[in-house]
């Protein structure tokens, strides 16, 4: 398991701007704990060996 990832206010500001959002420092600061937990989840996803498995969407629609 990768250690929990820290994210700085500046990094979060850059990420949110790339996504088209402009949030002030107070809003970014409020978001940091949830973002830290989210990054931890994503790190677990990154660590999975998916082999040749292709992405799918939902159930085989008949």
């Amino acid at each position: 398991m990768l250690p929990p990832m820290e994210i700085t206010l500046d990094a979060l500001r850059q990420v949110s701007r790339l996504a088209g959002f402009e949030w002030d420092d107070a809003e970014l600061e409020a978001l940091r704990p949830l973002v830290a937990r989210s990054l931890d989840l994503l790190a677990r996803l990154d660590a999975v060996d998916l082999g040749e498995t292709e992405p799918t969407t939902q159930y085989r629609v008949l």
């Binding site: 790339l18 949830l34 996803l45 990154d46 498995t53 992405p55 159930y59």
Partner: peptide, 26 residues
């Protein structure tokens, strides 16, 4: 609002890896 905003950290690669894992769990 916070949950929606946290979605900005999910990349296209994460989304597709998640969809690949979906095939395995299914």
């Amino acid at each position: 609002r916070e949950r929606l905003r946290a979605g900005v950290v999910v990349s296209a690669a994460h989304y597709l890896r998640a969809q690949a894992l979906r095939a395995r769990v299914r």
